[in-house]
């Protein structure tokens, strides 16, 4: 009994203090996957903010955009043109979603909208598979100008190893989160987006055009998806199994709150770092593979204490 307690509460910390360089390495890896989780969750938050719809198709949009990009490059297009065309495809997708799903279903219940996004994800899986085939593809990292290789740093009498790709991903995620955060809080369009999220009928009454807002939001979510797809695709393969990572966005959203952009970032970091730390220092004793569930455990704990998340909007109710 005492032995188990020692393994849980003392052992891991002794390990950490004995090998601080390993700790830094673990933290860094957690940080990188955290920023990527944040990117995925950001796509959900954008759409949830502007239309109160939990977009089940977000994971597929990540895969679909990455597939389009890789597919176009494989067809022999230069990388910059393929990137540009993928952005175009995401725009077309946003407009078609607005025309065929959002507009006809305006003022419908939330569950109707959720079903519609599930339908959209089935469509994208089928359509993407039809055009680009089902087999996994690899992201042509070099063609896209994403740095590869790694850097060595010495800290605490040891080394840590930083993949350039990871560094690029983290920087990109940070830039996106900050830009979108500023865009939402300071600009005229951002204000309109938040207004639509609060009360779309009232937003209509002051002359905000819902169609325009929806297209902007879905297009932005598509671009965020594309960025996520590029970096996740570069770390593994581009295939439809990648959509599973979208499920990792759920605990991040629960932690950060469904409507907060900084919340998404912090939430992503907590989940990413928590997951890595647990796996390295506690998971080993449990046989490993804890990444599959630790994130959800953390989310569950948060649901008990702070059901609206760290930065979620307070639900304002008049009584």
């Amino acid at each position: 009994m005492l032995d188990i307690l020692h393994k849980i509460f003392v052992g891991p910390f002794i390990e950490m203090s004995h090998a601080p360089d390993l700790l830094v390495q673990v933290l860094w890896e957690g940080f990188v996957s955290g920023t990527l989780y944040a990117l995925i969750a950001l796509g959900f938050v954008l759409i949830y903010k502007a239309s109160s719809v939990f977009n089940f198709a977000q994971g597929i949009m990540v895969v679909f955009s990455a597939l389009t990009l890789v597919g176009l490059i494989e067809m022999g297009l230069p990388a910059w043109l393929a990137l540009l065309m993928t952005v175009g495809v995401m725009y077309v997708l946003a407009v078609s979603v607005e025309r065929t799903i959002l507009l006809p279903l305006v003022n419908q219940s939330q569950s109707t909208m959720i079903m519609a996004t599930i339908g959209l994800s089935s469509f994208l899986i089928g359509f993407g598979g039809f055009i680009f085939g089902g087999e996994p593809k690899s992201m042509p990292v070099a063609l896209l100008g994403i740095p590869t290789g790694s850097m060595q740093f010495s800290v605490f009498n040891g080394h840590i190893n930083i993949q350039n790709l990871d560094l690029a991903a983290a920087v990109m995620a940070l830039v996106m989160v900050t830009t979108l955060g500023i865009f939402f809080s300071k600009t005229r369009i951002g204000r309109a987006l938040r207004a639509v999220a609060d009360d779309h009928q009232a937003a209509l009454s002051v002359g905000i055009t819902l169609k325009q807002i929806w297209v902007i939001v879905w297009f932005t979510a598509g671009i965020v998806g594309l960025t996520t797809g590029i970096f996740w695709g570069a770390r593994s393969d581009v295939s439809f199994s990648l959509q599973i990572i979208a499920l990792k966005a759920l605990p991040v959203l629960i932690l950060g709150g469904f409507t907060s952009i900084p919340g998404v970032f912090i939430g992503g970091l907590i989940i990413g770092i928590g997951e890595q730390l647990f796996e390295y220092y506690w998971g080993v004793q449990m046989g490993g593979g804890t990444q599959g569930w630790v994130a959800y455990m953390i989310a569950l704990l948060f649901l008990w204490v702070m059901p609206q998340g760290l930065f979620g909007e307070k639900i304002i109710e008049r009584i």
Binding site: R188, R191, A192, D198, S205, E313
Partner: peptide, 26 residues
């Protein structure tokens, strides 16, 4: 022609000033 709807319908999570500014959207 502006319609001020029944039940006020302010944007609750925006500040009063931001609410006013949304009115100038067009």
């Amino acid at each position: 022609c502006v319609h001020v709807m029944e039940g006020r319908r302010c944007f609750e999570h925006l500040t009063v000033e931001e609410n006013l500014l949304t009115g100038a959207f067009t």
